[in-house]
């Protein structure tokens, strides 16, 4: 096995008319790695992935996928990758087994359709027409189709969007099982828990740029501090807090009426806060100290990016 990266991208750019969908993205994926690309709608995730898959041509930058330029989707590349798209795209009148057999016939060294059906828990549905299968079952078949060619690299574009929590967990288990044996995975998702559950590394995209990258725990620890959250009783305002805390306290986005103070020295900060509360005879409701979740970090990154974008837009208008 070569040690060269499976995917290497430098300065990738793509525009649709006036809209710059991808604005200079660099990324690299090692063999066997699971990379999650996170970001809101319109962040450039799908555009980037479709360039890597060979569906879209890029406007600028260097791209190598498994040692080849994916532009124009050369057949030698298509033999080695698996693609699971956002839309299901399966002939609804064929049965699950027929669809898998059909796709298996497209590849030089396919996996056994029946074995794949068992892996995704569809053995009992093998003879069922796709149109009579539930959305979740169709998606599992979809995952099996992505793997039927024994790919070295598989792209999963929002594999569990629209799933209920139980179905998502089931889908994650399937992805893990399918990829045993060192398949490299590039996955796009809106869900942080999905990235945390599956990925070795996470890249956060916003407005066509990479705004953060690292392991899920790296990213979570990026904020550097712990989150101390509490509620103030009626009649006490955030402005009444000691000066050192009043400045950094902000509304907790996920918990109405609560305040959050972020601190790299939580012991001292907590001491100061509770000292102040005892002195004033104030009871702090729902007091908690927590490590920031990946979600906190993600939302802040997206927030900061939006603010920066808005500021840049304002500047260009002012100028």
């Amino acid at each position: 096995m070569s040690s060269a990266p499976v995917i290497e991208v430098q300065g990738l750019r793509k525009r649709f008319g006036d809209f710059e969908a991808v604005r200079g993205i660099d990324l690299s994926v090692e063999r066997g790695e699971v990379l999650a690309i996170l970001g809101p709608n319109g962040a450039g995730k799908t555009t980037t992935v479709e360039i890597l898959e060979g569906y879209l041509d890029r406007d600028g930058g260097q791209v190598t996928v498994l040692g080849q330029d994916p532009a124009g989707a050369p057949r030698a590349l298509r033999q080695k990758i698996g693609i699971v798209l956002q839309e299901c795209g399966i002939d609804r009148f064929l049965t699950a087994r027929e669809v898998l057999q059909q796709h298996a016939s497209f590849y030089p060294s396919p996996r056994d359709p029946d074995e794949l059906l068992e892996l995704v828990g569809l053995t009992e549905k093998a003879g069922e027409r796709v149109k009579r299968m539930s959305g979740g079952q169709q998606r599992r078949l979809d995952l099996a189709l992505g793997m039927v060619g024994s790919p070295e690299l598989i792209f999963l574009d929002e594999p569990t969007t629209g799933f209920d929590p139980a179905a998502r967990r089931q889908a994650w288990d399937i992805v893990r099982k399918l990829c045993e044996g060192g398949t490299t995975v590039v996955l796009t998702t809106h869900y942080l828990d999905e990235a945390q559950a599956l990925a070795d590394r996470v890249m956060v995209f916003a407005h066509g740029e990479v705004v953060a990258s690292g392991t899920p725990s790296d990213l979570a620890s990026r904020s550097g501090g712990s989150m101390i959250s509490f509620e103030l009783p009626a009649g006490v305002a955030a402005a009444d807090l000691p000066a050192s805390l009043a400045g950094s306290a902000r509304q907790d986005g996920g918990h109405a009426g609560a305040l959050v103070v972020e601190s790299t020295t939580p012991t001292a900060t907590l001491h100061e806060l509770t000292g102040w509360a005892l002195e004033r005879g104030v009871e702090l409701g729902a007091l908690s100290v927590a490590r920031p979740s990946l979600e906190d970090v993600y939302l802040r990154l997206i927030d900061d990016e939006e603010t920066a974008q808005a500021a840049a837009a304002k500047e260009s208008v002012d100028a």
């Binding site: 990758i81 693609i83 798209l85 399966i90 189709l145």
Partner: peptide, 10 residues
């Protein structure tokens, strides 16, 4: 998306 998916195979 059926045509797109097939076009992504060899």
């Amino acid at each position: 998306g059926e045509l797109k998916r097939k076009r992504g195979t060899p």
